[in-house]
Design a protein around this nucleic acid. Structure first.
Lengths: 187, 187
DNA sequence: TTATATTCGTGATGTATGTCAAGTCCGGAT
DNA sequence: ATCCGGACTTGACATACATCACGAATATAA
């Protein structure tokens, strides 16, 4: 089942069997049920996660108690409260399962061992980080240049499956509009 | 003058003189005047830039021709149209000087040579990429959870000098509001 | 200097969106 | 089958913001 991880990494750097065995040793498997929290606000964040199957939402709750979806994470995505993970501080985000989910877990210590022990792996994480940054920048640009309807259409074009898998109120939260407004956009 | 680069890198990884000499050899210096374009839409993006001094704006122009500020870049920042830089495709962003500016330039080839030739440097870029991602994510959260006035206050708190260095219309563009609205927020 | 552009504020008005409220539809639990 | 709660839509109204217009102050250039 770590095989999915291997395929994922080999999209960026080829691996020998020995190398993958080394990598694999730094991950553990966990399963979560729908509605379970993988990270809750205030937790110490032990892991970053590679999603084997399932679907997650990364959520920030504002002072007024209103939740906002920072991102979704589906198969082949890496997710965590990365700020808390990297700085080993308390989580300000929560990570919750929208479906039954299976993940591979990597501690910060193992993340660093992977980077230091295998140059290819550091290269892999560098690529991931760069493209993660570009994805966020793209979302910022989308927000600066497009109205709600256009952003909605861009989202369903980019992730068509999302519409079938999550309620529209969560899509609305991700886009930063109310669920009522989103409902009216389709017209 | 590459000395600023050394100090900057050594905030993350310590370097020997030999190592820094190796690094230094992969950068060239350039100077630009206020209003000069370092990157224009449609250009091939030869470099990513480390800002020694001065101030830049990274801009996306929408279909209607309206410019939107994706980010500012000041001393000690790295900037480019990274998507175009990494994928060697045409720039969709422009990079323009708001002040006379001095930068160190690094081609993608040199970037890769640095990563492959010196593990410390790959580690450095990994840290930069991770924190760049976290910065963008923070901005997205700020947008999801705060109104214009709050986002404005967060910005001046985070970068007080920006207010003295750029016209408010650019701040407005960065925040995604009209200059008139920004003008009324102070009240 | 004078001329010209840039910056900034402010009023009037239209529009997009949030909020509150009601009601329908549907699936899960008992 | 009945009940209940979540998902979604739609209307009414309030509000934040964009846009257009104008003028004053300031900077920049000839």
């Amino acid at each position: 089942m770590h095989e999915k991880l291997r395929q994922h990494i080999e999209k960026i750097v080829p691996l020998t069997d020995d190398e993958f065995a080394f990598i694999s040793a730094h991950f553990t498997t966990k399963k979560f049920k729908k509605h379970q929290f993988m990270i809750q606000e205030g937790d110490t964040v032990r892991y970053c996660y590679f999603v084997i199957s399932g679907l997650l939402k990364l959520v920030h709750t504002d002072k007024g108690g209103k939740p906002h979806i920072v991102s979704f994470a589906m198969e082949d995505w890496w997710e965590s409260d990365y700020y808390a993970f990297f700085t080993q501080t308390e989580a300000t985000l929560s990570l919750e399962c929208l479906e039954d989910t299976e993940v591979l877990c990597c501690t910060l210590e193992d993340y660093n061992k992977l980077c230091n022990g295998l140059q290819k792996m550091q290269r892999f994480f560098l690529e991931k980080a760069n493209f993660g940054f570009l994805g966020s920048q793209r979302r910022i640009i989308s927000w600066l240049t497009s109205n709600s309807k256009e952003r909605y259409e861009q989202l369903i074009k980019q992730y068509p499956s999302l519409m079938q898998r999550v309620p529209k109120s969560l899509i609305a939260s991700y886009l930063g509009v109310s669920r009522e407004t989103l409902s009216r956009l389709s017209a």
